[in-house]
């Protein structure tokens, strides 16, 4: 069950791919469709994996995507690492 979701403003997207690449759960992929400027915005291919960590929102240089939690914020478990600790 997904604990989070993403919101995408497709018209702002310039398809840099940062969100896709750095999503820790690999939720996103660039879609095959175009926005009006001819870019391929992302879409969620495995939405159930989304944790709502908003790392996509932090990376997106075009303010086109952000993630948010859909569940009640729970106390962090030991397995839940801050995504940035990987880098």
């Amino acid at each position: 069950m997904a604990r989070g979701s993403v919101s995408i403003v497709v018209e702002r997207c310039k398809a840099c791919g940062f969100c896709v690449e750095f999503c820790p759960s690999k939720v996103l992929a660039l879609s095959s469709a175009f926005n009006s400027k001819g870019y391929h915005p992302p879409h969620a291919v495995t939405p159930e994996k989304c944790s709502g960590c908003d790392l996509c929102g932090m990376y997106c240089p075009d303010f086109a995507i952000h993630g948010f939690r859909t569940d009640k914020p729970a106390a962090k478990s030991e397995t839940e690492k801050e995504p940035d600790d990987a880098c």
Binding site: I8, S31, P47, G57, D62, T70
Partner: peptide
């Protein structure tokens, strides 16, 4: 295009409050 998931209850992107949204999209490449 394949539908991106947009939750009806999606809270605003926290960056929005800081932006002059009427000037988006920006000029950066």
């Amino acid at each position: 295009m394949s539908s991106p998931i947009v939750s009806i209850t999606a809270p605003a992107n926290p960056v929005e409050d800081f932006l002059r949204t009427d000037r988006m999209p920006h000029i950066w490449c």
